[in-house]
Structure formats: structure tokens, C-alpha cells
Amino acid sequence: CYGMPVGAEVFETCVQIGRFEYIIEEYRKYATYQRIYRMEEKIAICHNPRARDSNIRQALIDRFGAVGTKKNPGYFYGFKKDIWAAMAVAVTYHDKYLTDRE
């Protein structure tokens, strides 16, 4: 966390990542994984390593369309902070590792 204090949630996330990796290694012939680091995500989506969450969110909206409203929901209608982060990881993975295959 770049020298900043962190809470128990960060360490719990590390434990969970380790568990997922262990399970995937056990079933390697059925699944693989690739870590996506925050810096990769910023560069892949915003082309700037200093991008913030708001910049990433806006870049995703520019790429896929508006959030929308309840009456006229867009692609991202109902997304919350964690869902935006997951979408950014998925888009980064797609662009870096799957685009060549299509």
C-alpha cells in the first residue's frame, strides 16, 4: 500500500488470493489464472500510471456507454465501487490476453 497503513481487509484479501491460487493449481488442467496488477490496469485503460478510480470509471464509460438512469438504464446502470473495479480488471485482462485470440 505504498507505505500507508492498511486494515485487516487487505490481509484477508491476500489470504483469499492465496486460497484461490492453491485451488487453481490443484485443478490446473481445468483452469488457469493471470494476476492483473493495479498499474497494469491504469495503463491499459487510461494510458496513464497516475490515473485514479474516477479516471478509470470515465474511461470505461467512454468506451462502453453511459451509466443511464432508472427509466433508461445504460450498460453500467447499478454498478457500485467494487463492480467498477472488477470491470476494470476484466477489461484489462481481455485487452491484454484475449484480444490476440479473436
Rank of each mutant, 00 (worst) to 15 (best):
V67E: 14
G3E: 08
A90H: 09
G65D: 10
W84R: 05
T13K: 11
K96S: 08
Y27N: 11
F79Q: 03
K70Q: 13
P5I: 09
S54G: 03
Y22M: 12
A51Y: 00
A31E: 07
D100E: 13
R52L: 09
K42C: 05
C46S: 03
A31M: 12
V10E: 04
S54F: 04
K71P: 02
A85I: 09
R57N: 04
D62Y: 05
R35D: 07
I24C: 05
E21S: 03
Y37T: 14
I56C: 01
D82V: 08
Y27L: 07
R57W: 00
E26M: 10
E21D: 01
R28C: 06
E102G: 09
A44V: 14
Q34S: 08
L98H: 08
A59W: 02
R35I: 10
K29P: 11
T92F: 00
M4T: 13
Y2A: 14
T92E: 03
I43Q: 02
A51H: 01
E41M: 15
Q34V: 12
K80F: 00
K71L: 13
C46L: 01
F11Y: 11
I83F: 05
D62F: 02
L98E: 15
Y30N: 05
R57C: 02
V91F: 01
K96W: 01
E21C: 08
I36V: 14
A44Y: 00
Y37I: 11
R35T: 11
E102Q: 13
K71I: 06
D100R: 14
V6W: 04
R38E: 13
A8C: 06
E21N: 04
D82W: 05
Q16I: 11
M39K: 12
W84A: 02
A90E: 10
T92G: 02
Y37K: 13
A86W: 01
T99V: 12
Q16Y: 08
F64K: 12
I45G: 01
R63G: 06
T92N: 03
M87S: 15
R63Q: 15
I45F: 00
V89M: 07
D82R: 12
E12T: 12
M87L: 09
I17F: 04
F76M: 08
E102H: 14
K42P: 00
I83S: 15
Y97G: 02
R101P: 00
Y77W: 14
K70M: 09
A66L: 07
Y97S: 05
V89Y: 00
R63Y: 06
F79N: 08
R19Q: 12
Y77R: 07
A44I: 09
A51P: 01
T99M: 10
G78D: 03
A90F: 04
T69W: 04
W84H: 03
A31S: 11
A8D: 12
G74L: 06
G18C: 10
G74Q: 10
T13V: 07
F76T: 08
G74N: 09
K96H: 11
F76D: 05
F76Q: 07
Y33A: 02
P5F: 03
C1Q: 14
Y37N: 11
R28S: 14
F79W: 02
M87F: 05
R50E: 13
I83M: 15
E25M: 04
I24Y: 01
G7E: 08
E40M: 12
I36K: 03
V10S: 03
A31K: 10
R101G: 01
A85D: 13
R50M: 09
Q58H: 08
A44G: 06
C46F: 00
H94G: 13
A86N: 10
D100M: 10
